[in-house]
Design a protein around this nucleic acid. Structure first.
Length: 922
RNA sequence: GCUCGGAUGGUGGAAUGGUAGACACGCAAGACUUAAAAUCUUGUGACCAUAACGGUUGUGCGGGUUCAAGUCCCGCUCCGAGUACCA
């Protein structure tokens, strides 16, 4: 029998489905292991060869853990809401759900061919009402919760209401948009609307007027992580700042826990670092300044030590203080400046870093010296960070310095010996001068002393500031989860839980209404009737953003068909959280923050049993494209091979990599590829046309997209799986290069050849020899270790070595070969399953046991010692394993080769490293 | 600017401080074949040398620690990723 991968793979894939081999239940007799891939957005282009990289790695790991006796949860699903399907709908009128379902079918076909061990009974789709019911449910819970700072926990909003009724804001420490203060009687006389407005200040899901990233071309707002370099992540359209009433999630309240939680996670340092920076904790003080007689405002600073160097203040153009403080003389000029900055998009602001600003006409009073300090307005101060106002210390902050130089403001140095004539001295080191009570202190001491003094004089207090912003949660789009919110008297109320899900309505067009409302404004009867037979009220017109559905999907896989809970306590207690999560780094500041936030909220609610969703996270690298080029001689239809091209005047042209094999062009296929090349002539070298190549992004326009289906057609899924892993370290980005795939294909043929010779099964029950056992156990040891460390490329090398050894030993021993294919089965499940059955097993190989290493077989009889002189290895000697140090030393010294190197001198020292090396220092 | 990675043959890449280049691709030679493909065998960092042995050099650059450095430490260069008026 030949190795007929096509037939084998089809047959076993069918067998696995028919016998539900990968179906998993909560088997409490076994330890659990949860392996998860970041679920894909099913795009119209289908999978290219880069997408399955992480899926293959997680599948290998899942199968390995299963063989080790774990009960492995390994599900897959689709992140089905997304802009491309909606954009397509706008252009063609095709409903996004149709496009999405078509794409899902296509994805599924492609995934199935690769031989994954997913339990498809647990599939989730974020656009499925049975799924998004729980997205809406969580939103309702967030609406009815507030965040208690002292307990660091989300709690029911009713507790807050009870407190307000009894003692107003006294005794509460809740995260709020604004700091409010009122007493019980004030609360009790408030109207319903006023009370709702107060509660909105505390809700975890809340409506707020906020600066948002507005993308006019997409017709929607975007979250910070969806904006890259001032343009939208999807589509690359310009984004501007705008104030809008939006739903937001109070993620910022969880900042400290999100930061601390990182320490408990087995994630890469760089990813943790990225999240730390995104959360952006900074310790400092909020200090009050007064302007005139009655205006008081706060600034945030991490450098309280520099308070005596403050020579001006700066407000963000969007700051509410601008209007209050600007004097009448300056008003016209200030307004001109504000209008100018408002018109600029985020992108223009990033591109143009030149200094600009305007004087407000007002002066603040220095809290210590009581000197007047001019207040300026400039867009280098951001409204969204701190208080939107700063104290400027030009001597020790480069941005303040640039501003001071530009507008000719005074600069007071505060550190002994620093030179501020050319640039600011930003380093936090040196001895303080010009600083009253801080003179003579080090900067470090002064930072602390400065804050102490501010607190002692009641001018401000210690404060920790976070860069992490609340997440905008409204999108003015059609293709997303509807909010479970209706409006009565202009106030939002949540839909009853029993009425969930609120299903996405049909609309005639997927565009905003003529009045500028989101697409849901076109839906008929888009209302909710809270009381049967009562009045109907309008539902929210916005939909939720992409990250809504992906935030808790890992919990849903544990109990996907439960219609009474997101996840049952039973299922969650068994599966806990994700042991291994594999996906791309691009989600570092989006999904991976939101998901952690969402889980912490559910944890506070008692729904999720673990404080963190993903214990270990591995980022697979990106697969880039490897483009091929042909060289056309200018103004002809003649193409010249790579190494002859310099003799002509040529233009490189991208050529489809699928008609190139090992950089050799299939010239007939090329002539048929494009009518333009029908009559192409070639200048060959050695009878071949060699193409040039370059690493580029994988894209249609570069003709470098490689489809996994084509690889499977030609080499089989097992070869694809092995080759993707063999390409290099999992976490590294690398170009896809089909050259070299023959090597792993050859390897599989050799594995086949161990079992079959001349189409006859040749496996026997003979006793294994010592050499065979050694070759096998070397492999088991290496592969077990490598899989745990995600070093799949080196484990495949180990397989190649082992199979070569067994081949040359003419091994056809059944016990050796069956253990070999058990080890191979996570990597190449189809061929392993085939051979497993061929040698007489009736159960699937997935139920086999991962073999244990027996160190006995690995013991060496002898070791090769590298004999080196002054660290430089010169020759090799063999010693029995039980040779003593003295014997080795004696033999080495008496060896004629040693005499040559020692050259009559007396060695200073001889170092014997057991089983490895003898170094003689002369 | 800051943070985090990385730099090893023609190529992808291996190396708990201990014989650098495992494994694979490619290439070359040979075997089988009328021939090609497939398969198998051998060789393959560079340089020098040879009938043969052998030698020199070598992991981006410059220093250091060590009996011994691709690996550890200090200082650079270049490349990649993330992030950025965050006070």
């Amino acid at each position: 029998m030949e190795y007929n991968f096509g037939e084998i793979e089809k047959r076993w894939q069918q067998y696995w489905v028919d016998h539900q081999i990968y179906k998993v239940t909560e088997d409490k007799s076994k330890p659990k292991f949860y392996v998860l891939d970041m679920f894909p957005y099913p795009s119209g282009a289908g999978l290219h060869v880069g997408h399955p990289l992480g899926y293959i790695a997680s599948d290998i790991f899942s199968r390995f853990k299963r063989l080790q006796g774990y009960n492995v949860l390994h599900p897959m699903g689709y992140d089905a809401y997304g802009l491309p399907a909606e954009q397509y709908a706008i252009q063609t009128g095709q409903h996004p759900s149709v496009t999405t379902q078509d794409n899902i079918v296509r994805y599924r076909e492609q995934l199935d061919k690769i031989g994954f061990s997913y339990d498809w009974d647990r599939e989730v789709q974020t656009c499925d009402p049975k799924y998004y019911k729980w997205t809406q449910w969580a939103f309702i819970k967030m609406f009815h919760s507030y965040y208690c700072n002292s307990e660091q926990k989300a709690k029911p909003i009713e507790e807050l209401i009870t407190n307000f009724e009894k003692q107003g804001t006294k005794g509460i420490d809740a995260a709020g948009t604004d700091t409010l203060e009122f007493n019980a009687s004030e609360w009790n006389v408030m109207s319903e609307k006023e009370q709702q407005d107060v509660l909105m200040n505390y809700r975890i899901a809340y409506l707020g007027d906020t600066m948002v990233n507005w993308c006019a071309q997409l017709g929607t707002v975007l979250a910070n992580d969806e904006v890259i370099d001032g343009v939208s992540e999807r589509g690359g359209y310009p984004v501007e700042q705008r104030t809008m009433r939006q739903w937001l999630l109070r993620v910022s309240a969880f900042a400290q826990r999100l930061l601390e939680g990182l320490d408990t996670l087995d994630w890469s340092d760089s990813l943790k670092e990225t999240q730390k920076n995104w959360i952006g904790r900074s310790e400092g003080a909020e200090i009050s300044f007064t302007a005139g007689d009655d205006v008081q405002f706060d600034v945030f600073t991490t450098r309280a030590d520099t308070i005596f160097g403050v020579t001006f203040m700066v407000l963000a153009p969007e700051s509410e203080l601008v209007d209050t403080l600007t004097t009448d003389e300056q008003r016209e000029e200030v307004e001109k400046y504000i209008n100018r900055t408002k018109k600029r998009t985020e992108r223009e602001r990033i591109a143009d870093r030149s200094v600009s600003g305007v004087f407000s006409g007002a002066y603040a009073t220095h809290p210590f010296t009581k000197q007047p300090i001019p207040i300026w307005i400039s867009d280098y101060v951001l409204a969204g960070y701190g208080t939107g106002a700063i104290m400027a210390v030009p001597a020790h902050d480069s941005r303040d310095y640039a501003f001071a130089k530009h507008f000719n403001l005074p600069i007071i140095p505060l550190i002994e010996g620093c030179d501020v004539s050319e640039e600011s001295f930003d380093a936090k080191e040196g001895i303080m001068i010009n600083s009253d009570f801080m003179n003579g202190m080090t900067v470090e001491e002064a930072i602390k002393k400065g804050i102490d003094e501010v607190e002692a004089r009641n001018l401000g207090y210690r404060k920790i500031n976070y860069r992490l912003r609340d997440a905008t949660f409204s999108r003015q789009r059609y293709w997303g989860e509807p909010f479970p919110i209706y409006y009565k008297d202009g106030m939002p109320y949540t839909v009853e839980e029993k009425d969930l899900p609120i299903e996405l309505p049909e609309v005639d067009k997927f565009l905003p209404t003529e009045t500028g409302e989101p697409p849901l404004g076109r839906a008929k009867d888009w209302t909710y009737t809270p009381v049967v037979g009562g009045d109907a009220y309008p539902l929210e017109l916005n939909t939720m953003p992409g990250f809504a559905g992906s935030s808790a999907y890992y919990l849903r896989y544990m109990d996907p068909h439960n219609n009474d809970a997101l996840v049952s306590a039973d299922a969650n207690t068994y599966w806990q959280n994700v042991d291994l999560y594999i996906g791309g780094t691009e989600h570092a500041t989006g999904h991976l923050i939101y998901s952690r936030f969402w889980n912490k909220f559910l944890f506070d609610l008692g729904v999720s049993v673990e404080a963190e969703p993903f214990k270990k996270l591995v980022n697979q690298g990106m697969i880039q494209g490897r483009s091929n080029f042909v060289y056309r001689i200018k103004d002809t239809n003649t193409f010249v091979s790579l190494n002859l091209k310099d003799q002509y005047d040529v233009t490189p042209i991208h050529v489809d990599v699928n008609i190139v094999h090992n950089d050799v062009l299939d010239v007939d296929a090329f002539r048929n590829w494009n009518p333009e090349y029908k009559t192409a002539e070639f200048v060959l070298e050695d009878g071949k046309y060699i193409c040039g190549w370059a690493v580029e992004k994988m894209s249609k326009s570069m003709f470098n997209v490689v489809n996994p289906d084509d690889i499977i057609e030609r080499y089989g899924a097992d070869t694809l799986r092995l080759y993707e892993m063999f390409l290099g370290p999992l976490e590294q980005s690398k170009p896809w290069d089909t050259n070299g795939i023959d090597g792993v294909n050859r390897f599989l043929k050799k594995v086949w050849g161990l079992f079959y010779k001349n189409n006859e099964l040749v496996v026997t029950d003979a006793e294994p020899t010592k050499e065979e056992l050694k070759a096998l156990h070397k492999l088991i040891k290496k592969v077990s270790y490598d899989i745990e460390n995600f070093s799949f490329n080196t484990s495949i090398s180990a397989f190649m070595i082992c199979v070569n050894e067994l081949t040359s030993l003419k091994c056809n021993n059944k016990s050796i070969l069956s253990e070999l294919i058990v080890c191979l089965s996570p990597f190449a499940p189809h061929i392993s399953e085939e051979l497993w059955h061929a040698i007489g097993n009736t159960e699937t190989i997935c139920n086999a046991k991962w073999p244990e290493v027996n160190e006995e077989y690995l013991k060496e009889d002898s070791f090769s010692y590298a004999i080196s002189f002054n660290g430089k290895a010169r020759f090799v000697l063999e010693f029995p394993a039980d040779a003593t140090r003295e014997e080795i030393e004696k033999t080495v010294m008496e060896h004629p080769n040693s005499q040559k190197w020692i050259d009559g001198k007396t060695p200073k020292k001889v170092i014997v490293v057991p089983n490895k090396i003898v170094n003689i220092v002369i």
